[in-house]
């Protein structure tokens, strides 16, 4: 009976396999091989040194400069540097002020174009690839954003009186050959002083006229009177400036005289001062 049962099972199995109802065994040999690299490590970026910060003469922009940093140990260098400005010495939100893409001969410096005032803190961040970063410590800096102190000696602001009295007053302060004078001082140095002097006559048809150093001319239809460079001389505290011309020629007629003086310091900070006098 046992052998008959076994034979029956074999026949049934063969039928099932033949009909596809039971998958046939597809035994196969296998093998495996593995290869290992050994240790792979990554390099790193050196943290840039704290940048140097200075204010540029002429533009007054804050220039941030730094030394090159390295990537890895085989002479790699960052692909770019970014300069960030912070409100505080630590923490805070960085504000990107300028950046430099590294190329042959590229200077490792850039200017913060914001002309921001007060005390701020600059850091330089080296970048490499899409995401590698290394940021320096912060350098504290306060840019000079204050313009020169301008004093108008003559004519005295707010004067109101006869033309003769005005001429005497101005002559007493500046000298007879100088219709306006004063001083401009600044710790960084005064780089220029310009002026514009106008007079508006009396009467319903009065027009604005511009002093050009020699005589009055009609104000251009396009706008205000042009500014001209003042004559300057160095004093112990800064500059003495004068407007060319004579007191007699300038303050000859009745009217309202307005003098505008614009002084600029070495960092492009500007101070504008206006005085008005009236000759009756």
């Amino acid at each position: 009976m046992t052998s008959r049962a076994g034979l029956s099972a074999l026949v049934v199995t063969l039928l099932l396999v033949g009909l596809g109802w039971v998958p046939a065994t597809r035994a196969a040999f296998t093998d495996r091989a593995s290869v290992d690299s050994g240790t792979v490590t990554s390099g790193s970026m050196t943290t840039p040194a704290t940048p140097t910060v200075a204010q540029r003469s002429g533009t007054g922009l804050t220039r941030v400069s730094w030394a090159a940093s390295r990537v890895g140990t085989l002479g790699g260098v960052p692909t770019a540097y970014e300069v960030y400005r912070y409100a505080g010495a630590t923490g805070g939100t960085p504000v990107l002020t300028c950046s430099v893409t590294v190329a042959d001969g590229a200077a490792l410096a850039c200017d913060d174009p914001s002309r921001v005032g007060g005390t701020v803190h600059y850091a330089v961040r080296a970048t490499f690839g899409d995401h590698w970063r290394a940021e320096s410590s912060r350098r504290t800096f306060a840019a000079d954003r204050t313009g020169p102190v301008v004093a108008v000696g003559e004519p005295p602001d707010g004067f109101r009186g006869g033309a003769n009295a005005l001429r005497r007053e101005v002559s007493r302060g500046c000298g007879s050959d100088v219709p306006a004078c004063g001083t401009a001082t600044d710790a960084a140095g005064v780089s220029s002083v310009v002026w514009a002097l106008t007079v508006v006559g009396t009467g319903p048809r009065a027009t604005t006229r511009c002093w050009n150093g020699t005589r009055f001319t009609d104000q251009p239809a396009s706008g205000s009177c042009p500014q001209a460079a003042a004559t300057t001389s160095t004093t112990r505290d800064g500059l003495r400036w004068t407007v060319p011309g004579s007191v007699e020629d300038v303050y000859r007629d009745r009217g309202e005289y307005t003098l505008t003086v614009v002084a600029t310091d070495a960092f492009a900070n500007v101070t504008t001062t206006t005085v008005s006098v009236t000759a009756t």
Binding site: V35, G43, L74, H131
Partner: peptide, 11 residues
């Protein structure tokens, strides 16, 4: 295969 290893890789 140590020639597949590399030290100090950078991006």
């Amino acid at each position: 295969r140590p020639d597949l290893a590399l030290e100090g890789m950078v991006p």
